[in-house]
């Protein structure tokens, strides 16, 4: 298949950047979106041009590194997949595909399609953990019985891979889905109760400090999330936050 790619090119964080047209041929439906970009980069390198920079690592939907805004949607038009899992058969011969970096003030562009998502790491560091004794007398996590429903919901929340698609999709560039998934995976478990009050307050504070927007419940994040993280997590975080505030 033949495609007309329109790709955001930006030399470094300080340069202005612009959309550049790249016509490309010989793309197979079985290729992933990233393999399609590999083909393009091969060509660019052969021509002596600078290849298009993009983030990737596992290429199997588990690391959360890949992060492209494709035709106005994070991870493209398909549902419940990351960009590395998106197949070119989702596009038609002759299509124009616009590829941009995830846009958010809290995700500044490093170059081309790569953005700095360390703001997520800082939210995680602000409270997305539990403190356990690891000095030789570690307690087995399974020593505390947990009801199946809670365990399943905690596991669902924990499948968030921190890709940032929720922020990229949101008209407010809000990080509520990510943060609420990280809060929920502990809030649902007994191990998470000890630090519950500080956790939600500190993580929300960090989220605001990073310059993410506020949630207005458009639901775009849930639709675009490759892991199907549910809006129920945001409601849960709002409850946790409310109860933490009243507890001081």
């Amino acid at each position: 298949m033949k495609l007309n790619l329109k790709i955001w090119r930006q030399k470094d964080a300080k340069s202005k950047g612009e959309i550049v047209d790249y016509p490309i041929k010989g793309i197979e439906g079985d290729m992933s979106f990233l393999e399609m970009l590999d083909v393009l980069n091969e060509e660019l390198i052969n021509k002596g041009e600078e290849p298009v920079q993009f983030d990737h690592d596992c290429r199997e939907g588990i690391c959360g590194a890949c992060s492209l805004q494709i035709n106005g949607e994070p991870h493209g038009p398909d549902r419940l997949v990351t960009t590395c899992q998106l197949h070119m058969r989702k596009f038609n011969d002759g299509d124009t595909i616009v590829i941009e970096p995830f846009r958010a003030t809290a995700f500044p562009v490093i170059n081309d399609l790569i953005v700095d998502r360390t703001s997520f790491d800082r939210i995680q560091q602000a409270g997305g953990y539990i403190s356990v004794n690891t000095s030789g007398n570690t307690v087995d996590a399974n020593a505390i019985p947990i009801n199946k429903h809670d365990a399943d919901e905690a596991m669902d929340a924990a499948t968030c891979i921190g890709c940032g698609a929720c922020v990229a999709a949101c008209k407010n560039a809000s990080a509520m889905l990510f943060t609420s998934a990280k809060v929920s995976q502990f809030a649902l478990l007994p191990q998470g109760q000890v630090e519950a009050v500080d956790r939600v307050q500190n993580m929300v504070r960090q989220m605001d400090l990073e310059g993410f927007g506020n949630c207005t419940n458009t639901g775009a994040c849930e639709v675009e999330c490759p892991k199907g993280i549910s809006l129920e997590n945001i409601a849960r975080m709002n409850r946790e936050y409310l109860s933490a505030t009243t507890k001081g």
Binding site: N71, G72, T105, T218
Partner: peptide, 16 residues
């Protein structure tokens, strides 16, 4: 302010 630089293409109807 949370998205100072806007997208060239933003397909909001696809998800909200």
């Amino acid at each position: 302010k949370a998205r100072a630089i806007k997208y060239k293409q933003y397909n909001g109807n696809a998800n909200s």
